[in-house]
Write a protein that binds this DNA or RNA. Structure first.
Length: 472
RNA sequence: GGUGGAUUCGUCUAACGGUUAGGACACAAGAUUCUCAAUCUUGCAAUAGGGGUUCGAUUCCCCUAUCCACUACCA
C-alpha cells in the first residue's frame, strides 16, 4: 500500500475515531483488468499492522454489506437505470475512444446524448455493446464547501459526460462511490485532492438521485523530491514508498504513522511525537492544510528514531535481533548488551548490520586515527598505552563489564591519565573506526578476550611499521 | 489547451490584520560522555513578484510567475 493511500486512510481513521464515528473498509475492485492476486490481503495486513482497525468491512461484515464492489454489480445497474429513466443518464453505443476528439475541448463528444428511445431500443435489441453515461447539465454551476479547501465552484459546461456503467456491466469508480456512499450512510468522505476536479460530477449524481450529499475533506497530495531537485507526486523512484517496504527496512509502524500524520496536518501544540491514541485525541480538521508536502526520509528517520528510543528495551532486543544477523556467532550471547548500545543510535533496524560490522571483522584503518588532539593522543603515546593494556588484560580472568571497567580505570590512574586519553587508542585498535557504538570497554566485552588481545597487538604492529616508514 | 488547486526558512510547519515571523528536521558551534549516539544550550535560515484595501498586511482583493492535480469503459 502506497504511503499516500495509507495517509488518506489514517486521516479517515483519525477523523472517524475522534468523532466517535465508524471507519469503514470497502474494496473497490470494479476494474477486472487490474485485478491482482493477494492485493486485498495486503490491504488487510497493512491496516492491521498500522493499527487502523475498521468497524465494518468485507472480512468482518456490518449492516451495509456486501463491502466488496464486485459483489454489488446488480445494485449499480439498478441505480444506473434509474438515472436513465430520470433523464440524468443515457445509453451510449460508441466504441471506446471512437469519439474522443483531439481538439481543445477533449473528452467525449456526446454523440449518443440525444438518441431517440427507438434508436436506443433498436441498438440494444441488435445486441450492440453499450455504456451508460451521465447526462451533465449544459449550463449552471456546481459548488460545495470543502472542509479543507473551502468554497469551490465549477461550471457544468466544463464537465464530461462520464461513463457510469461500463460495457462489461461493472460500474466505474465515479459511479460506484456515489451509490455506495449513499447506501452505506457515509457522512464524511476523506480522499486525496486529485479527486477535487471530479467532485462536481459526483455532486450532480447526488442531485439527480435527490440524495443528501456527504461532507468532503480533500487532502493535499504527498510529493517526493527528484534527483534533479524538482518535485513530483511521491513514487517508487523516490525510494521505498509502500508501507510494507518501509516496515521491511526496519521502520516501526508507529513511527511511519506518526510521520505521515504530520504530512498535511499539524496539531495545535508543538508536540511532534505521537502515539495513535494521542493522534486521535488531537486530530482536528482545522489542522489539515491545502498545500502539498514533500516526503522527507530524513525527518521520517528522526521520528522513527524517537520511537525506537522510546521502545521497551525488551521489545527492542526481540524485534531488532533478526536485523543484526548474528545468529550462531559469538556475539549472539551478548546481544542484549549490544542491543542496549544500538537502541539510541539507529533510525531504523536495517541500520544495524553496518553499525556492528567492525565487531565481526576489524576493518583496515590508518594510524592517523590514533592521533587525537583533545585526548593528547599521538602514535608514540598510543603504542605505549596499547602495550600496557595488553600486559594488564592478558592476565585478567574475569572478562565482565564491571571488571573491565575497574581494570581500565586503575590502569588510567597508574598512568596518570584520565579514562578518555587511555581508552582512545584502545578503542581505535579494537575497532579501526573514528566513531563506534559504545566505548572501548563495551567493545572489549563484546569481542571477548582473545580477539581483543589480537586486535591490540596488531595495533602496535601497525604503529611500529608506520614509524619505520617515517624514519626512512 | 481547458478546469480546479497551491505558494512562509533547504524540508515539515505555526502565526486565522498589529509578533524581534515561532517550533521541528537537517546543518554548524558548545556543554556532557571512555569515541559516537542520546540529552541540554546556542547559531544559521523564510512570507514567490507586482499592484491595491487598511493607521497597519504572511494574513483580505486583483494581476503575473511557478508548481501540482484532473481532463480513462483506472481508481
Amino acid at each position: 500500500m502506497h504511503i499516500g493511500n495509507l495517509r488518506t486512510a489514517l486521516f479517515a481513521y483519525l477523523f472517524a475515531k475522534s468523532q466517535n464515528g465508524k471507519f469503514i473498509l470497502r474494496i473497490e475492485d470494479t476494474d477486472q483488468g487490474r485485478y491482482v492476486e493477494g492485493s486485498v490481503d495486503v490491504i488487510y495486513d497493512t491496516l492491521r499492522t498500522a493499527g487502523l482497525i475498521h468497524d465494518e468491512g468485507p472480512d468482518i461484515g456490518g449492516s451495509y454489506g456486501p463491502y466488496t464492489q464486485s459483489e454489488r454489480k446488480d445494485i449499480y445497474r439498478k441505480y444506473a437505470l434509474e438515472l436513465v429513466e430520470k433523464g440524468a443518464a443515457y445509453y451510449c453505443f460508441c466504441q471506446k475512444d471512437e469519439r474522443e476528439s483531439e481538439s481543445a475541448e477533449g473528452g467525449y463528444d456526446r454523440h449518443c446524448r440525444n438518441l431517440s428511445p427507438e434508436e436506443v431500443k433498436a441498438q440494444i435489441d441488435a445486441g450492440k455493446p453499450y455504456v451508460i453515461r451521465q447526462r451533465i447539465p449544459l449550463e449552471g454551476t456546481t459548488s460545495w464547501n470543502d472542509m479543507v479547501y473551502g468554497e469551490i465552484s465549477v461550471e457544468n459546461s466544463t464537465l464530461d459526460d462520464q461513463v457510469l456503467l461500463k460495457s462489461d456491466g461493472m460500474p466505474t469508480y465515479n459511479f460506484a462511490n456515489v451509490v455506495d456512499d449513499h447506501l452505506m450512510n457515509i457522512t464524511h468522505i476523506i480522499r486525496g485532492s486529485e479527486y477535487l476536479s471530479s467532485n462536481p460530477k459526483y455532486l450532480l449524481l447526488y442531485q439527480a438521485f435527490g440524495w443528501e450529499t456527504p461532507r468532503y475533506i480533500h487532502l493535499p497530495i504527498i510529493n517526493g523530491r527528484n534527483a534533479d531537485g524538482s518535485i513530483s507526486k511521491l513514487s517508487k523512484r523516490h525510494g521505498a514508498v509502500s508501507f510494507q517496504a518501509l516496515v521491511e527496512q526496519g521502520y516501526l509502524p508507529e513511527g511511519i504513522i506518526n510521520y505521515i500524520a504530520l504530512l498535511g496536518w499539524s496539531p495545535k501544540s508543538e508536540q511532534e511525537i505521537f502515539s495513535m491514541d494521542e493522534l486521535i485525541a488531537q486530530f482536528s480538521v482545522d489542522g489539515v492544510h491545502k498545500s502539498p508536502a514533500v516526503f522527507d526520509y530524513q525527518k521520517l528517520g528522526w521520528v522513527n528514531g524517537q520511537h525506537i528510543t522510546m521502545l521497551d528495551p525488551q521489545v527492542f532486543i526481540r524485534d531488532a535481533f533478526r536485523y543484526a544477523r548474528i545468529e550462531g556467532t559469538a556475539l549472539e550471547s551478548k546481544w542484549p548488551k549490544l542491543a542496549s548500545l544500538l537502541q539510541s543510535r539507529i533510525t531504523k533496524y536495517s541500520d544495524i548490520p553496518e553499525k556492528i560490522a567492525f565487531l565481526h571483522q576489524l576493518p583496515e584503518y590508518s594510524t592517523e586515527l590514533y592521533i587525537h588532539k583533545k585526548n593528547k593522543s599521538t602514535l608514540g603515546s598510543s603504542k605505549a598505552i596499547l602495550e600496557k593494556a595488553i600486559e594488564r588484560l592478558s592476565t585478567l580472568d574475569d572478562w565482565s563489564e564491571e571488571s573491565l571497567l575497574s581494570t581500565m580505570t586503575e590502569l588510567a590512574a597508574e598512568s596518570g591519565l584520565k579514562l578518555g586519553p587511555l581508552t582512545w587508542p584502545v578503542r581505535i585498535a579494537l575497532s579501526g573506526l573514528m566513531a563506534t557504538p559504545g566505548g572501548a570497554i563495551d567493545i572489549l566485552y563484546l569481542i571477548g578476550k582473545d580477539e581483543s588481545l589480537k586486535r591490540l597487538s596488531s595495533g602496535i604492529q601497525l604503529i611500529s611499521k608506520e614509524n619505520l616508514v617515517d624514519e626512512k
